[in-house]
Simulated assay, not measured.
Amino acid sequence: MFRAIACTVTIAAGPALAQTPCGGPFGGFVEALSAEAVERGQKPDTVDAFFDGIRQDQSVLDADRRQGIFQAPFIDFSRRLISSDRLERGRSLGRDYATTFEAIEAEYGVPRGILLAFWAFETDYGSFQGDYNTANALVTLAHDCRRPELFRPQVFAALELFAQDAFDPDTTTGAWAGEIGMVQMLPEDILTNGIDADGDGRVSLKTSPRDALFSGAAMLADLGWRAGEPWLEEVEMPTEFDWYETGLETRKPASDWAALGVTARDGEIDAPDLPASILLPQGKDGPAFLAYPNFPVLFEWNQSFTYVLTAAYFATRLEGAQIYDAGNPEPGLNGAQMVRLQEALQARGYDVGGADGILGSGTRAAVRDVQRELGLPADAWPTSELLERL
C-alpha cells in the first residue's frame, strides 16, 4: 500500500484572518500576500525566499483569456484530441505499466482508462508538461480579479510545498494555470494527495509516472470516485422522447431510462441499478451517452463539459468501447453566434456564467428551458433557428 507523504499543512486560515484583495499594483499585492503568509504561520525567512523573485507574467493572463478550443463542439473536439496514435500509445502504456495500474485499482478503485485519458490529454503522456514558471503563474492569477478565489489558496499551498523542500519557485514549471506534472495537479492537490509510489522519498510528478498516476488516482478517490462503477456508456435514443429530461440535472436509475426506450449500443446497460443522466452533447440527432455518478467527479479535474466528456469517452475507448455513432446533428453556432445567444439568455434572466462563447453546463440548461418555452425539441443544443427565435 502507498500513502501520501506526511505533510504539516499550514495553509488554512482562521476565520478572523483578512484575505489579501486582488487587483491594484502588483508589487503591493505581493507584499500584502507575504504578510498574510506570515500571519498564517509561515516563517518570515521562508516567505521572503519564496516571494523574492516573483514576477507578473502577462503570457499567463493571455493564455487564460485564450481558450477558443473549448468553443468547438464535441464531435470536432473529440476527433481533434483522439487520434489513432494517441489511442495506440495509451493502450501500449497500459500494458507497460500494467502492474502499476493493477495496484492503483486495488488501492483506489480508479481504472486505468481514466488515468490514461488524463495523462494523454493533459501532457500527451508526459511529453509536454508546460514551461510556465509555476510560482509566477499562480501569483499572477491570484492578483488578477477574474478567479482569485481559485488561485489564492494555490499560492499558499505552493509556499507550503516550498517550506517542505518539495517546490522551487525559481525552477518549477508547468501549465499556465499552475498545474504541475504528467497529470497536471495543482499545489493543494499535491499537498493532499501526492504519493511517493516509487519509494524514492519524494513526490516526483514531473519525472515519475508511478508517482503521477498514483497521485492522480488518490485525488480522484478523495473527490468521490466510486470503485467498481462505470462512468460513461454510449446509448441509442428512441425517436419519441421528452428531450427536456436529458442533461446532468436529471438522474434516474438506468433501468428507468431503459424502460423509456433507451438502449445500450453494445447490447446491455452496464449498471441498470445506478442513477444516470442522459447526455446529448450535440442534441437529439448526435451522439448519446449515459453518465453515471463517477462522471461528475471528473469536473474537479477540468470544468469544461466538452473536455470532460471527451476524456471520459476516450477512457472507455482505451478499455475496449467502440467508436461513438456521430449521427447527423444540426449545425451548431460559431463563437460569435454563441456570444449573441448567451447575451440573449442573460437578458432573459439566465445565469450562463458570462458571454464567453463556450457552451457550458449553465448555457445548456438555459437553452433547454428556452427551447421548451418556444416549442422546440428541448435537447440543449443551440441552433441558428433558436438564435433567430430569440
Rank of each mutant, 00 (worst) to 15 (best):
L387N: 05
R317Q: 12
F289S: 03
D270Q: 14
L390G: 07
R3E: 14
V9F: 00
V60G: 00
T250F: 10
A137C: 04
N328G: 06
L260V: 02
T173S: 11
T100Y: 06
G90P: 00
G194T: 01
Y313L: 04
A37Y: 08
S215H: 12
A103R: 13
E160R: 08
D96S: 11
P281Q: 07
R146K: 11
N302K: 13
G126Y: 08
L93G: 00
G94E: 00
G68P: 04
Q282V: 14
A16V: 10
L260Y: 07
G335T: 08
C7N: 05
K284P: 01
K284S: 09
G23F: 02
N302W: 05
Q58K: 14
M1F: 12
F295C: 12
R364P: 14
L390R: 09
L141T: 09
A347N: 06
G41P: 12
L87I: 02
M219W: 02
P230K: 03
F156T: 07
I54H: 08
D45N: 02
P25A: 15
Q42F: 15
G90S: 00
A72N: 09
P275T: 06
R340K: 11
W243C: 12
E36A: 10
R80L: 13
P111R: 11
G109W: 09
D356N: 15
E39M: 15
Q371E: 10
L309D: 11
N328F: 08
V47H: 00
K252Y: 08
L17H: 07
D57H: 06
